[in-house]
Amino acid sequence: MGCYLSTNSKKVRKTQGYEEPTVLASETPFTVSEVEALYELYMKLSNSIIEDGLIHKEEFQLALFRNENEKNLFADRIFDLFDVKRNGVIEFGEFVRSLGVFHPNAPLEDKIAFAFRLYDLRQTGYIEREELKEMVLALLHESDLVLSDDMIESIVDKTFKDADTKDDGRIDQDEWKAFVSQHPSLIKNMTLPYLKDITLVFPSFIARTEVEDSE
């Protein structure tokens, strides 16, 4: 099926960062046709504001929030982790490889590690108390929830007490793994059921190409 992409390549403007679906399928939980379906999604997202076939942060925000100007700490972190080359855009290969972690069949340890990197805001290799508090405050702000400072401190303290078993004021990767194994719901958002049905959601890559050919 992947042959369609290369044999019909006259129909596909290959953008910067484009990688062959067969290569991406071999390195991720996706099949070739699922990668092709993701290309449909990618092209839609990457041309929503700036038509250059690359996902800019505003386009990512627009897709997530229906608002290109909505700032959000967590969306920023996701964007930064997807932007592996750190060039300010998410390229197609980066998009597929990163979304692969969210596939229902991706290894659990990959999901746990990704969530750790997500929450390690300053990339020190640890989740620190200040970072956790910053994330709680961001979530409250985003949700228009108001809690007293004491309440916020209590939530952060309690969580830290439970997760920081070495009691050194920071959560390392081993502590994080142990904490997630006790609270599996923490990484529920690291699985996107949609990805199992991506060819149903975006079924039209091959079909559309053929339709265009016949027009």
């Binding site: 999604l41 997202l45 897709a63 997530l64 929030f65 959000n72 700490l73 967590f74 969306a75 920023d76 972190r77 996701i78 979304l99 969210f102 997500l118 929450y119 956790l132 994330m135 709680v136 961001a138 979530l139 985003e142 949700s143 809690l147 309440m151 209590s154 939530i155 952060v156 309690k158 969580t159 830290f160 439970d162 997760a163 904490f179 609270h183 719901s185 923490l186 990484i187 529920k188 958002n189 996107l192 949609y194 991506i198 959601v201």
Partner: peptide, 26 residues
């Protein structure tokens, strides 16, 4: 839900910014 008993990470994981499902909505 009494907030003090909440797990901070549980709270954070509800962020809309982490809900990538929105990317797939047409």
């Amino acid at each position: 839900v009494a907030p003090v008993t909440m797990n901070a990470f549980e709270l954070i994981s509800k962020s809309r910014g982490l809900n990538l499902g929105s990317l797939f909505e047409k």
